[in-house]
Design a protein around this nucleic acid. Structure first.
Lengths: 201, 201
DNA sequence: ACTCAATCAGAACAAGTGTACTCTCGACTA
DNA sequence: TAGTCGAGAGTACACTTGTTCTGATTGAGT
């Protein structure tokens, strides 16, 4: 990332804070006052440089449309780790894991997992599963993990399989039985899109 | 939260998406087009209702200053699901899982997991592990999962154990051996605070 | 049948706002 | 020493944009 001058850095830092707090960009005259200036020209100049250097962008001619190009919310992904004695560090290109924006859409919701019936799918007690609402049951693919409500009763997390007009709900644990229902008996409330676990002491 | 009409809900959902994607509010005429309308009046009406019901707010007279009052980045936690045929739905109090803010501190970073040496700890290939830097190796508790760099070589994810002045790195998979090193040989780069997995088709 | 709220079209206005322009000044460099 | 670049003041203009009108339509209650 190309370095910034002191004045540019000052404006950039203020911008990031303002946008994070207010969910929208300030106007040039607002920035002017915040920087203690009496003319919009210096702000324009700094903004031009910030854009040229790849820090921000905006829609030409439109009011308050500045966007910070760097991810504000995510955390940096430094590389790949682990296991087979291999490791790799991303030095030049630091991607970012945007837990807030990237894989999650509006409407998604989370459920806390009780029990261990999905242990074979690496989902354990206490995990948070992020679900996406399913509007058309026909669109669910075989083997997807879904939250299924059975006959207006309890909801469980299971593998989804079709068998004619029947629906199979398979746990990922030998200790639990496979359940079969008529398609009309089960209500698929969502499909699994992500798992979050922070239950480490 | 007061319920919304269909038209209001449609606008609100679109708004949330737009602001999250663009870091600023759209103009009324943009909303007009997005909703397929030919007049700004209906949008204003919907916005008035959304504000009155506490969903959004804006600075009067200022362009593109709409803010979503609800937390955009967290996602709602509807309840507990699964497993032992038990389920529970949180109806009254909807907590929110703030993936961006809550359990993650500044300085945390993510690593993509290669291999299956931690499969016993329910961490599989492709998972993102969120690590927190460890400054004092003495503070690490027995059995914590850490990212350890061995003799300035590769970094691996393992259980951390002490044995006198030696350090044991135990994988969570029988197929891999336990490794032992002098404390001076291993550099603990971080301890595991969370796991994220979104590799579902 | 009546009321009321919510939803639309269309037009108009005033303020907010981005942008362009002309200057000056200081720091650094060839 | 002349030249370039970034910072800053001040002014002006055109477009974007929020807001306010006047009406018409629809649907749900009563």
């Amino acid at each position: 990332m190309e370095p910034l001058t002191e004045a540019q850095q000052e404006l950039y830092d203020w911008l990031v804070d303002y946008i994070r707090d207010n969910q929208h960009s300030p106007s040039i005259r607002q920035m002017m006052k915040a920087m203690g200036l009496k003319s919009p020209a210096p702000i324009q100049s700094r903004l031009d440089h910030l854009r040229k250097k790849g820090y921000i962008d905006w829609s030409e001619g439109k009011a308050r449309t500045i966007r910070i190009l760097q991810d504000i919310h995510g955390i940096p992904v430094y590389g790949a780790i682990a296991a087979g004695y291999v490791s790799e560090v991303y030095t030049d290109e630091v991607t970012r894991l945007d837990l807030a924006g990237l894989p999650i859409k509006s409407g998604d919701y989370a459920l806390k997992v009780n029990g261990d019936s999905m242990i074979g799918a690496m989902i354990q007690d206490g995990d948070m599963v992020i679900m996406r609402p399913v509007h058309d049951p026909q669109s669910i693919r075989e083997g997807t993990i879904v939250a299924a409500r059975i006959e207006r009763g309890e909801t469980t997390l299971k593998y989804f399989h079709r068998q004619g007009n029947q629906v199979q709900l398979k746990p990922a644990n030998q200790d639990y039985p496979v359940q079969e229902f008529l398609a009309s008996q089960v209500d698929i409330q969502g499909r699994l899109v992500a798992v979050w676990r922070d239950s480490f002491d």
